[in-house]
Design a protein around this nucleic acid. Structure first.
Lengths: 150, 150
DNA sequence: TTTAATCAGGACTAGAATAGTCCCCAATTG
DNA sequence: CAATTGGGGACTATTCTAGTCCTGATTAAA
């Protein structure tokens, strides 16, 4: 399976929770209980989302967290990147890395291609989309991607 | 980073190596040296690719491996699935899993949507594509995905 | 002013997953 | 029969992740 870490999974759930009520302040305990994730873990995730600028925090009594931007402006890609760093399937798709495979390096260009397709898919979906009920049918046309490879 | 395990990465490199010379038999030692991955690891990956039906093996002296199908018929998605199991970003995108988040479950439908987009991207690329030189420009239109969410 | 609530930041631990290695058996060739 | 090569699986060590906890800073309310 093309894994996303559990913490990232939680992050999306938590971000979606805030997106349902974008104006309200949500404190860690409230989020923990309504989302069903242990409090310390929730706190950890909240900190990372705040550092990434996805959430804003209010300190002090009756403090809490809320989305820093409107739900439709926050993409799933951004939440994932906040927890996992830049999106990419392989090491070599990121920097000019130390890929020592004598063979693989012709491949890199095509990896970046795939990565961009995935990134595009994740960026096309916002938190506002996630909290909507799912659509029945899913029209995806990726023919253009394939055309690009010829 | 949206991680793919190293073994999966190797698998793609190895599969691409075979795709460059689809008729020839490649034994483990040859692949190891030309690809720059330790022999035992290469053997491990080769076994999995064979079990998945992506490679065919010939036993005995002068045996080796070769692609079971033409390079353009083997998608990157299939190679990944051979090593990692079904493609999906989250647990809950697979089976009717034991997702106990009181909150998250409205989200599932949208996850499957994202997963399908990614799967489509990975299926659109074959080994034949991977061994070609990379195209300069990448026209990807995922507008349809977003449209599907409305 | 004091107290309580809440976030900030980081250290720490246990467990799981991964990567990598090795061994013995089966099959084929010559 | 002997040499080569894949088949299958067991095993280990290391890395990574998840999860917990503690201490300090900030704010609100009593």
């Amino acid at each position: 399976m093309l894994r996303l870490s559990k913490l990232t999974d939680y992050a999306i759930v938590i971000a979606c929770h805030c997106a349902r009520n974008p104006q309200a302040l949500h404190n860690a305990a409230e989020i923990s209980s309504s989302v069903g994730i242990a409090l310390p873990t929730v706190q950890k995730v909240l900190k990372r989302l705040t550092q990434a600028g996805i959430l804003r925090s209010e300190r002090g009594a009756h403090g809490g967290y809320l989305l820093a931007a409107a739900p439709h402006q926050v993409s799933v890609a951004r939440v994932i990147a906040a927890l996992e760093g830049p999106i990419g399937l392989t090491e070599c798709s990121l920097a000019e890395s130390q890929c020592r495979q004598a063979d693989g390096c012709d491949i890199r260009g095509n990896w970046t291609l795939i990565n961009r397709a995935i990134q595009a898919a994740l960026e096309a979906v916002s938190l506002a989309d996630m909290v909507k009920p799912a659509p029945r049918e899913i029209p995806i046309s990726l023919g253009a991607l394939h055309a690009g490879l010829r």
